[in-house]
């Protein structure tokens, strides 16, 4: 699946209206997803966590510095093709 997602066709122009290529990356890994504009990003986030073996509760997905919640869609975030979702680990501080 990942290979299929990562090998989009070169002609993205006709697909730009419907499908987006989103790069999801933490500092180590980069995963590309091809999703619809109306797809909720929860699906993407869960897929990434499953693939990387991370707890969804301890992972933050950021888009342009702001946290992405499960109900956001590329439309609501005004995402373009090739945009990047950053994955950060939970930060804890107390002392």
């Amino acid at each position: 699946m990942a290979d299929q997602d990562q090998s989009p066709n070169g002609g993205e122009a006709p697909q730009a209206t419907e499908h987006l290529n989103i790069k999801v990356t933490d500092n180590n890994n980069e995963v590309f997803f091809k999703i619809k504009r109306s797809t909720k990003l929860e699906k993407l986030m869960n897929a990434f966590c499953d693939r990387q073996g991370k707890d969804a509760k301890t992972v933050r997905f950021l888009f342009d510095g702001q946290r992405v919640t499960g109900q956001d869609t590329p439309d609501s975030l005004d995402m373009n093709d090739g945009d990047t979702l950053e994955v950060h680990q939970e930060q804890i501080g107390g002392s």
Binding site: R60, Q91, G93
Partner: peptide
Amino acid sequence: HDNWLNDAVVND
């Protein structure tokens, strides 16, 4: 539980 805040609460 741990009573240190995490980034979710702080940022929000």
